[in-house]
Amino acid sequence: MDDIKRKYVIPGDVITTGPYRAEENVHLHGDKIIATTVGISEIFDSGVRVIPLAGMYIPRIDDFIIGIVKSHTSLSWELNINSCYAGILPAQDVFGRDFNPKVDDLTSRLKTGDLIAARVANSDRSRDPLITIADRDLGKIEEGELIKISPSKVPRLIGKRGSMIQTIESATKAIITIGQNGFVVVSSEEPEGLLKAMEAIKMVEEQAHVPNLTERIQQMLGSNSE
């Protein structure tokens, strides 16, 4: 961590000049490496990148996400996955290979407004991303409360090796499901724990750029529970 140089940047900021590799969220102009988004720039080894603090969710294969059913045709559901593209969940994925559009009614399984835990099965920007719920722990979410955070702040909410999320879950007794797309579902037996967990998540979203955030969250949760 110490040998990585970090800096707050906005689009257009020249991060450095010289023989570096331009990685994510930067572009090369002559020998200048320029940030293309608001975030924190990192120079590591011979590469330069910016960790974004704003922006849309771009689906990547195998991402775990949470989607909201927007509508359906006779063959598939269309999902709001907080991205520039709508997620497509094919009916076969839910009904199996024997799916018959004449017999099977899609709304009998999922209807508009339902929340689902899902994975991105395929995504290449030339077509709407394909979503699947055919796996363990995937499918309709039956309880909890949805919070939307910026997808760019999801890594912060998870924390290093899940440290942040573990901190919040153990202090509030809430169960938190985080979609890579910034949709987060919180559920808890106790209304108080639910409120505290949601408060903590909002704090992570607002202060994602602040160092020692885990300690701050611990403090907030600790002082609240006493």
Binding site: I10, T37, G55
Partner: peptide, 11 residues
Amino acid sequence: LADAGIPMRDM
């Protein structure tokens, strides 16, 4: 545009 996190070559 920058606030929306849309990638920009420059301001």
